[in-house]
Design a protein around this nucleic acid. Structure first.
Lengths: 213, 213
DNA sequence: ACATGGTTTGACCAAGCGCCTAAACCATTT
DNA sequence: AAATGGTTTAGGCGCTTGGTCAAACCATGT
């Protein structure tokens, strides 16, 4: 077997297990067993278990940024609102196809030994998002500050994927079936456009009132 | 020292550590050291480490449901929209005062050994929420189905608290300062009322269009 | 003074962990 | 045929883990 195959098999097994059990609860022996690869090879190819996680995340973030940039670049002639839809769509599709990804990230972003690493990688995307929103809506109304909106939209998107178990039991249906995913996409698009329209509203009558109910 | 004190000290230490390092990465020795209590006492008072987590979550969910019911019951004469605001406010306040709570939950709801336990406890709140929304808006428009809206609002609220680290680095300011929390609350209220208004809209012209952007 | 029974203690255990090492493997070059 | 150097292997090392245990502690009732 080629060394590249070995690496790939280890990464796939680690991805599955980190997503299913969490990083801490997954042992190198689990990964070796699932991938059908000798335990020592993990350390030979990736170094420590932490390094393996880093390699995994490297791959994810590389693919994600590429996906998002492609979505932003393609059909560049579209309006900003349409670009927003494209990016959100692409992001949703990416998460749908890489469901372990947001489970791993969500698990580590709030607490754990890898907070810093995850935060450092989540941050740039947020910064780009804020800048981009700033171009669309230079004067955001009170209660709809750009960081607030961005945080909300982000949370709205990822929560659907991290809460698959809850949604499954709540609706009885598979939240990741093509149909369900399409429905979710429609919803996100709708809410996003609603918010976009709202933050683009001119301050209007700058007389007595200061911010609507 | 009274046994009740011991129990409390263990719970507080476990709460801190589970929130900071995660359940798996926290050892019973850590908890013993932080609480200044003998390691064996943890097992004497709570049983296994899993049982300790369960006791911790029991306390949290009990206080949370009490908080939410109180918020819903008080000022019962108010309109449904105002009740929604009250509940969201109370929920936000609760998370602000119990920041480790949503870190622990968020860490376990997507993956891990405690998924089922967490899901079983998150589910009822979702069910109540869906029922309640159903009373407000019996005919939700396409793209704004109640479960979708509820998921989004929930995600919007908790993401702010689970992503404290990111927001800290993004804005440079403490996202949990009273001022910042107040700003977030304003935002959530605003978006929620926006969504409420939208899902209550009558199907309107039932002629050609079916639900557009 | 003594017995009681809920608490506390330090020492201890088997199991499992991440990681390492020495030797074997094998395609390629000399 | 011998040597090379990137892979693969079984086994094991030192250490930490969650959990246990018998003994000690101590306020209480007798």
């Amino acid at each position: 077997m080629k060394p590249e195959e070995t690496r790939e098999k280890i990464l796939v097994a680690a991805d599955d297990l980190f997503g299913e059990l969490g990083f801490d609860a997954t042992t190198t022996r689990d990964i070796a067993a699932r991938s059908g690869v000798n335990k020592a090879l993990i350390h030979y190819h990736f170094g420590t278990k932490d390094d393996l996680l880093e390699a995994l995340l490297d791959g994810y973030y590389a693919r994600l940024t590429e996906t998002l940039l492609t979505a932003l670049g393609a059909r560049a002639g579209r309006s900003l609102e349409e670009q927003a839809e494209d990016v959100l769509d692409a992001y949703g599709d990416f998460l749908a196809e890489n469901r372990t990804f947001c489970c791993i990230v969500q698990r580590e972003v709030g607490s754990g030994q890898h907070v810093e690493r995850i935060v450092a990688r989540t941050l740039p995307a947020f910064q780009v998002g804020v800048q981009w929103l700033g171009r669309i809506a230079p004067h955001a109304p009170e209660g709809l500050e750009l960081i607030q909106v961005l945080t909300s939209v982000y949370g709205m998107v990822v929560t659907y994927f991290t809460h698959g178990h809850v949604l499954q039991r709540l609706t009885g249906a598979d939240p990741f079936s093509p149909k369900a995913l399409e429905a979710r996409k429609r919803h996100v698009r709708r809410v996003a456009s609603l918010l976009l329209r709202e933050i683009q509203r001119k301050p209007a009558s700058r007389a007595g009132r200061k911010g609507g109910s």
